[in-house]
Simulated scan of single mutants.
Amino acid sequence: MATSLLTGDDGTVPPWLDPLLTMMSSGPRPDSTMRWLQRSTSTELLHEIARLPRPVTHADLDARPATLAIYHLRAVLVHCGVLPPRQEPLGRLEAWLEHQLEGLPPGHAAVIGPYARWSVLRRARRRAACRHYSFSAGQGDRRRISEAIKLLRWLHQRDRSLADLTQADLDRHLRGDRNRAAHLTGFITWARSRDLVDGCLVVPLRQADEPVLLADVEDHDARLRTLLADPAASLETQVAGLLVMMLALPLTRIQRLTTSDLHTRDGVVRLALANHPVPLPPVLAERIARLAQIAQGKPYALVPGTNDNRWLLPSPTLPGMHLCTRQIAANLHKAGIPVRTSRHLALLLLAERLPAPVLAELLGLSQSTAAKWAIHSQTGWADYLAARTAATRDE
């Protein structure tokens, strides 16, 4: 069935599809492959790809509407080597932008195109080249472009152009929404620098940093015990929860952990987070080592091919990709773990015990972030304990 599916117009399988044919024909789970071929909406796409007069490219898939079937098929083609790897969040942003520009009036596209390409995309590419560019970062950049498009549409509905934009117009459009203002700041700044708008326009400043929210220490410890004893919590959820509540790792860092980040020497399991592997507490070390062993041999339920995997938390359906932060957060929420407050408390506890430079080096934090938490541990922590003591005395 795989051969007939990948046969081109000349009656043969194109040579550049040989890796896919091999993966589909010799995978360890032929039953899964057959179900994928029979039920997957990618079948028609594979037919069309096999009939291309040249090797398929990412641009061929980007030209189609973004669907789960396209994401899934792209991951399969990258996994088997038919397509080269790419920074998927950045690739999706670029493809999304082209689709957006095609649907804009020419006058709007003439403004949004340069802004998106030379401001938003330029920073995104620079970030992707220097460090990880996450899906959440891509969503933020899409929001920045979308807010600029909304502003132009809002002006057009009032028979106004961008050059006519006044401070009163901008304030009326934003309606005091600081979140929207934050995403529109870059566009107004870019437009001012090119004399497209009045140079005196001011976007409301970002909302001040929110106060540090902490989980209650006793509740924190109780959630740890519950998580470890909960039979409904998967091993992946337990490890993710322990990494948040013990090492204060953000979900974007947890999702990128690989099996090669684990090191065992002299019976001590260490996790590489920055320059030096960090020794793990026994309760976390045992679970994360077991999870790494399972992850390396875990097959993809909906994808034909090998069990090859390097992620500690692999996607169950997309080969070569890790679990998304949204799913990790949903799993932790279901297990009763408030991610943000739990991570803040863990950072405060670590900052209380470790000097800021050591904390930054071990966890891969910036020096400024580590210093901020060191200050919180000396002030906010003391206030927190005083409040707890007063509450206990009142009870």
Rank of each mutant, 00 (worst) to 15 (best):
S4R: 15
D9M: 14
D9R: 13
G11R: 12
T12V: 05
P15G: 12
L21Q: 04
T22Y: 13
T22P: 09
M24F: 08
S25P: 01
S26Y: 14
G27A: 03
R35Y: 03
W36S: 02
W36A: 07
R39G: 09
S40A: 04
T41P: 13
S42R: 03
L45K: 02
L46Q: 02
I49E: 00
R54Q: 09
V56I: 05
D62V: 12
D62K: 01
A63D: 05
P65H: 08
P65T: 06
T67K: 01
A69Q: 06
I70W: 05
H72C: 00
V78I: 05
H79F: 08
V82G: 00
L83H: 00
R86S: 03
E88R: 15
G91D: 09
E94R: 15
H99N: 08
E102M: 07
L104A: 01
A110Y: 12
I112T: 07
P114A: 10
P114F: 13
P114E: 14
Y115P: 03
R117Y: 13
R117V: 14
V120Y: 13
V120R: 12
R122K: 15
H132S: 02
Y133E: 05
S134V: 00
A137C: 06
A137H: 01
G140N: 15
R144K: 15
L152P: 02
S161M: 10
T166F: 15
A168W: 14
A182E: 14
H183N: 13
L184T: 03
L184M: 05
I188D: 02
T189I: 07
S193W: 05
V197G: 04
C200V: 07
V203T: 04
P204S: 09
L205K: 15
L205W: 12
R206K: 14
D209Q: 15
V212E: 11
L213N: 08
D216L: 04
D221W: 06
L227S: 06
L228Y: 05
D230N: 08
D230M: 04
A232Y: 10
L235A: 05
T237F: 05
Q238P: 04
Q238F: 08
L242P: 03
V244L: 00
L247C: 02
L247S: 04
P250M: 01
P250Q: 04
R253H: 08
T264G: 09
D266H: 05
N275K: 15
P277A: 04
V278E: 03
L280G: 00
P282M: 08
V283N: 11
L284C: 00
L284T: 02
R290L: 04
R290E: 06
Q293M: 01
Y300W: 10
Y300L: 08
V303I: 09
P304E: 01
T306Q: 08
N307T: 06
D308W: 08
L312V: 00
T317E: 14
L318V: 07
M321R: 11
L323A: 08
L323N: 01
T325H: 09
R326W: 09
R326D: 09
I328G: 03
A329N: 01
L332R: 00
H333W: 00
P338K: 01
T341S: 06
R343K: 07
L349I: 12
E352C: 11
V358F: 13
A360M: 11
L363Q: 07
S366A: 11
S368W: 11
S368A: 15
A371T: 14
K372L: 13
A374F: 15
G380C: 10
Y384V: 10
T389W: 11
A391N: 12
T392K: 14
R393A: 11
R393G: 10
